[in-house]
């Protein structure tokens, strides 16, 4: 029966005695088919309950499924049998990220890169964890190490831009963001983030004319991202283009209707555009949303 189910996933070829090896689980996992990967690996572990390989694989699969607590329990069991690799520790750290414990994540990532200093992804994750902890200075070195190991990695350059901006080095930030944009040009799915970050920085520096095409590209790549629409609207308002600004900010509000701060910004925009009634409506909505949950976390 199990073999029949596996055969439904045509791109992964599994032998009839699949449960005798971990190959199927690994192949499904590599193909990002997490459910059959989990089922196959669990079946393997029933037959091989002391397999550290099986436990580590299941831990990785569960981490990908955002099931951090159980993932960690399998990593713990596996580690009692065989020392984890540097990359295993990276995955463990990702579990702690899912559990919102960035200090634990940073701790395990530090050990991960000690064991496996050539692991660019671990260095990147360490940098990101430090950023999440607010340690922008501390994030720089791991990100730079990651970039050295994997040159022209756009996402790393983008994060270095964020770090540089936080370190009050806006010119350096601009350079990193431009690198990030250039390095992802050949990617099949470029990210809107470096466009967004660079455009936002330029808007803050009162350079809306330069920011506009970047933010327009961000919206093109991620039309339903509220942040991209919000920042484009800001640049448009700074340029005096109230009509387009209202369009984009209204779209952001539609995408995130319970966002108190977006309603507030739209209200102010309407007011500046000479539409007091609509302004009042939006500001009232903002007030109601803040009043009901004066939370800094947008829904």
């Amino acid at each position: 029966m199990f073999g029949v189910q596996l055969l439904l996933h045509a791109q992964v070829a599994c032998p009839r005695d699949a449960a005798q090896t971990l190959d199927c689980g690994k192949q499904f996992f590599a193909a990002q088919q997490l459910k059959p990967a989990e089922a196959s690996t669990r079946q393997y572990l029933v037959l091989h309950p002391d397999s550290a390989d099986g436990m580590y694989l299941l831990g990785r699969i569960l981490q990908e499924k955002n099931e951090a607590a159980e993932s960690l329990s399998w990593f713990t069991k596996a580690a009692a049998i065989r020392q984890p690799s540097g990359d295993d520790l990276r995955v463990v750290a990702m579990d702690y990220v899912l559990l919102n414990s960035y200090s634990d994540a940073a701790r395990w990532l530090s050990r991960s890169v000690q064991m496996d200093p050539a692991n660019a992804e671990a260095w990147y994750a360490l940098g990101r964890s430090k950023m999440m902890l607010g340690d922008m200075h501390g994030a720089r070195a791991p990100l730079e190490r990651s970039l050295a190991l994997r040159p022209k990695e756009s996402k790393v350059a983008n994060n270095l831009g964020v770090v540089a901006e936080a370190e009050n080095h806006p010119e350096e930030a601009v350079a990193f963001y431009k690198d990030a944009i250039e390095w992802q040009l050949t990617l099949p799915h470029p990210s809107e983030q470096p466009y967004l970050n660079l455009g936002t920085l330029l808007t803050t520096q009162q350079q809306a004319a330069e920011a506009l095409p970047l933010l327009a590209e961000a919206v093109k790549l991620a039309p339903d991202d509220p942040k991209c629409n919000e920042e484009l609207a800001r640049a448009e308002e700074q340029q005096g283009d109230f009509s387009h600004a209202i369009d984009h900010l209204s779209h952001a509000v539609a995408l995130q209707p319970k966002s108190a701060h977006l309603h507030f910004e739209l209200g102010q925009l309407y007011r500046h555009a000479g539409q007091p009634e609509k302004a009042k409506q939006e500001l009232t909505l903002s007030s109601q949303l803040y009043g009901s949950h004066s939370s800094d976390a947008e829904p």
Binding site: M132, K155, S191, Q193, T200
Partner: peptide
């Protein structure tokens, strides 16, 4: 700022606020 790359491990924001 926001820098949520497609492959990043969590949605990331510069804000320390997380209510």
């Amino acid at each position: 700022k926001c820098c949520c790359l497609t492959s990043c491990f969590v949605a990331f924001t510069l804000a320390v606020r997380c209510g």
